[in-house]
């Protein structure tokens, strides 16, 4: 977050919500391991004092995977140092944050290729191949004459 975050002030206000949130993450991880059930926590639905979001990010650390999704603006999905915990930030075309989530999942579902898109992809690819084939056909015909 730019703006306030850039100003070097010592913020000592705490809501005390970071620690319970981390406990929730731990339980969600255990649930993921036991039943495979993923959990998504909407970080914007919780009262967090300035600096607490950064504190949470700090606490969870930087993991091995980081992915950028370019759909209706950039989204950053990065795994934290705690495997299975993803810090997801969606931005719109103006790069304004539209949502921030903690996803406790093996891989965020939005990263997987979607069946509808795959079908559209097949159609597009097939069309390209048809066109290439038709082009080749025309080229051979042209060559033969």
């Amino acid at each position: 977050m730019s703006g306030l975050g850039d100003i070097a002030v010592a913020v000592e206000i705490t809501t005390g919500n970071v620690t319970p949130l981390l406990h929730e993450v731990r339980h969600a991880l255990q649930r993921l391991l036991d039943t495979g059930e993923p959990t998504v926590i909407d970080l914007h639905s919780l009262p967090l004092a300035p600096g607490e979001l950064a504190a949470l990010e700090n606490e969870l650390g930087e993991g091995e995977v980081s992915a950028t999704l370019n759909a209706l603006g950039p989204s950053l999905l990065r795994e934290t140092a705690v495997p299975g915990v993803w810090f997801v930030t969606h931005r719109n075309a103006n790069e304004e944050i539209t949502g921030q989530y903690l996803e406790i999942v093996k891989i965020p579902a939005i990263l997987e290729a979607q069946e509808v898109d795959i079908r559209l992809g097949i159609a597009a690819l097939s069309e390209n191949l048809e066109q290439t084939k038709a082009q080749d056909h025309r080229d051979t015909q042209d060559g033969s004459t």
Binding site: L72, H90, T98, I110, D117
Partner: peptide
């Protein structure tokens, strides 16, 4: 709009 974009839209809408 791709399916991923749609899902992102839905996440924002849900929020």
């Amino acid at each position: 709009v791709s399916r991923r974009a749609f899902l992102k839209f839905c996440a924002a809408t849900t929020s």
